[in-house]
Design a protein around this nucleic acid. Structure first.
Length: 269
DNA sequence: ACTCAGCCTTATATGCAAGA
DNA sequence: TCTTGCATATAAGGCTGAGT
């Protein structure tokens, strides 16, 4: 009872999963994340708004990728889980939304999610957390991956290997896997469910979260993430997260961050 | 140092017709 | 069935400059 939320701020960043427990900026404007997003308040509830729709009071919510929304928490903090969609089996993603929409399962999901931070932070120390282990702790079961065309898989790996600062063009990747850019762009969307451009933009913005609790110039961070300048960076982050980079940084003080190796590549770039 | 807005350029999204 | 190229709309990229 003595420990406040400040002592419990925690984020775990994996390649295709992210767990966050910490502050939720009360000045949040509409955000559009590139991942399936699960929200719940650590205690009490929160309010959620989809696009131009009305505010609704929630205990638990799940939002599809690239859907604009806003959230405000009663207690000022939030638990949030992000699931990257590009390798996720579409049918299993659908099933996840059904599960979260089922009133009978809500209490169980809430309890599991609220307990997850402690279990994740214990498990992540030293050892590398796998996606499957993360899913079992947070969701109670490992989500299925979709089978992706090997050429698109190659392109995904290529982009991940290049680091967040890369400006890889669709035409370059198409060349590597032996397709025309036209076919590559179509196939990428078909196989991953997200457009090439949106995917690249989201991965870059997501990379900022790893820098969120660092000191130093935001301009330097912007450049190391591949943004051409701080102006563009500020704009993109605000559109993606609904918050200014500065607010995210201020809200991330005392935030403990764990990440696996690949997600952390850009950390000291 | 950071945010914000405007403006032009360019890459990408998407549908379609057609070739291999 | 898979692939390509093309046409057109749109959003990101890149830049400038002003405000905080």
């Amino acid at each position: 009872m003595t420990a406040g939320i400040e002592d419990h701020k925690y984020m775990l960043v994996l390649d295709d999963r992210l767990f966050y427990r910490g502050l939720l900026g009360h000045r949040m404007k509409a955000r559009s994340l590139g991942a399936v997003s699960i929200y719940l308040a650590p205690e009490g509830g929160f309010r959620l708004k989809h696009g131009n729709g009305p505010w609704t009071r929630r205990e638990l919510a799940i939002v599809p990728p690239y859907v604009a929304h806003q959230a405000v928490s009663d207690c000022g903090s939030i638990i949030s889980v992000l699931i990257e969609p590009e390798r996720l089996d579409p049918a299993d993603m659908e099933r996840l939304f059904v599960e979260f929409g089922d009133p009978e399962r809500r209490a169980g999901l809430l309890a599991r999610l609220r307990a997850a931070a402690g279990r994740l932070s214990d498990g992540a120390r030293g050892a590398r957390m796998t996606t499957g282990a993360f899913d079992r702790i947070v969701l109670g079961r490992a989500l299925r991956e979709r089978s992706i065309d090997p050429r698109i898989e190659t392109a995904l790996v290529e982009m991940e290997g290049d680091g967040l600062e890369s400006q890889t063009l669709a035409a370059d990747l198409a060349g590597i896997i032996g397709l025309s850019s036209s076919r590559f762009l179509h196939l990428f969307k078909e196989q991953t469910g997200v457009s090439f451009r949106n995917h690249r933009m989201w991965r870059r913005a997501r990379g900022f979260l790893l820098h969120a609790n660092h000191s130093g110039s935001l301009t330097d961070v912007a450049l190391s993430l591949g943004y051409p300048d701080s102006s563009h960076f500020s704009h993109s982050i605000r559109k993606t997260f609904g918050l200014q980079p500065r607010s995210i940084r201020i809200g991330s003080r005392n935030l403990r961050v764990d990440s696996n190796a690949r997600a952390a590549v850009s950390l000291h770039a």
